[in-house]
């Protein structure tokens, strides 16, 4: 008699695949253990900079995105030297870059300041896209399914929005975005209204990056949860004999469909993050 088999835990499986870890999992071939460093203590704050799975995929995404864009840039430069338009892969990547630059960055920030912020918006787009796509690869992980990564990107976006606004509007102009002057109000009423609006304005500034971080994180994680949960059904009903094959086939078909959906979501969420960052930068640049 064999020992009773432990019931399959979908939650454990889902968190195992979506959570961060100090190892790279290449099941069934094995795992690679990542080094663990001593955490840094800054007062009560403990900072562990040990590389994790998400750090590795973060770096991999950056290296892959840079390499692919550099190859495209080389192809474009070669085509330019030969006096022709780039074709194939270089042409496709050029279309992506030009779309993000013109239709997202410059269209929302403006012709004057748009080109200055375009590299940041383009870097956001390609970095996030690559991280999203890596989560769909076998043995892959999506760092954008981790709130720390999306929060860091949102903080960068927030800093660019606010510092860029301060540089453009000047200190007085920037303070006007926190303490707004209400048109038509004068005297003590205007002061009271301005002071009353200040918390709302500060809150609206903070909500933007929070929304950016939560939206990207939520969308990417939810997709992985759906896929992994559907996979979990296969294991849950694995003991049903012949029925399990039918359930497996149906589940695999649904998972395939969701994977296609996730592919679209990967592009869409990169686009949304880049677009909203550009819109927020543009709004601040044109604030009066």
């Amino acid at each position: 008699m064999s020992a009773p088999q432990e019931p399959f835990d979908i939650a454990e499986m889902v968190f195992h695949h979506t959570g961060d870890a100090h190892q790279l999992d290449f099941a069934p071939f094995g795992t690679i253990q990542l080094p663990q460093w001593q955490p840094i203590h800054l007062g009560s704050l403990v900072i562990d900079l040990s590389p994790t799975r998400h750090v590795v995929f973060l770096m991999l995404a950056a290296v892959l995105a840079y390499t692919l864009l550099q190859i495209a840039a080389n192809g474009i430069a070669k085509a330019r030297r030969e006096g022709r338009a780039p074709g194939g892969y270089a042409g496709m990547m050029e279309a992506f870059v030009v779309f993000v630059r013109n239709e997202i960055a410059i269209a929302n920030i403006g012709k004057e300041m748009g080109p200055r912020y375009a590299p940041l918006i383009m870097a956001f787009f390609f970095f996030i896209l690559m991280m999203n796509l890596l989560g769909l690869m076998p043995w892959g992980a999506s760092p954008t399914g981790n709130l720390a990564v999306t929060a860091a990107l949102a903080v960068m976006s927030f800093l660019v929005i606010e510092i860029g606004g301060m540089v453009k509007l000047g200190f007085k102009g920037y303070m006007g975005t926190i303490f707004p002057h209400i048109e038509g109000l004068h005297g003590p009423g205007a002061v009271v209204m301005t002071m009353a609006m200040a918390p709302i304005e500060i809150l609206s500034k903070l909500v933007k990056p929070i929304a950016l971080a939560i939206r990207l994180f939520g969308n990417m994680l939810a997709g992985h949860f759906v896929i992994l949960s559907l996979f979990g059904i296969v294991f849950l009903f694995g003991s049903l004999g012949m029925w399990s094959y039918g359930i497996g086939a149906v589940t695999a078909s649904v998972v395939l469909g969701v994977m296609f959906l996730e592919l679209i979501v990967a592009f869409l969420q990169a686009y949304v993050f880049a677009l909203l960052s550009a819109v927020f930068i543009g709004l601040m640049q044109h604030e009066h």
């Binding site: 961060d20 900072i47 590389p51 998400h54 750090v55 720390a148 990564v149 929060a151 860091a152």
Partner: peptide
């Protein structure tokens, strides 16, 4: 989220 991954980003 961990602060380490935040910094790594």
């Amino acid at each position: 989220p961990t602060i380490g991954l935040f910094i790594w980003t």
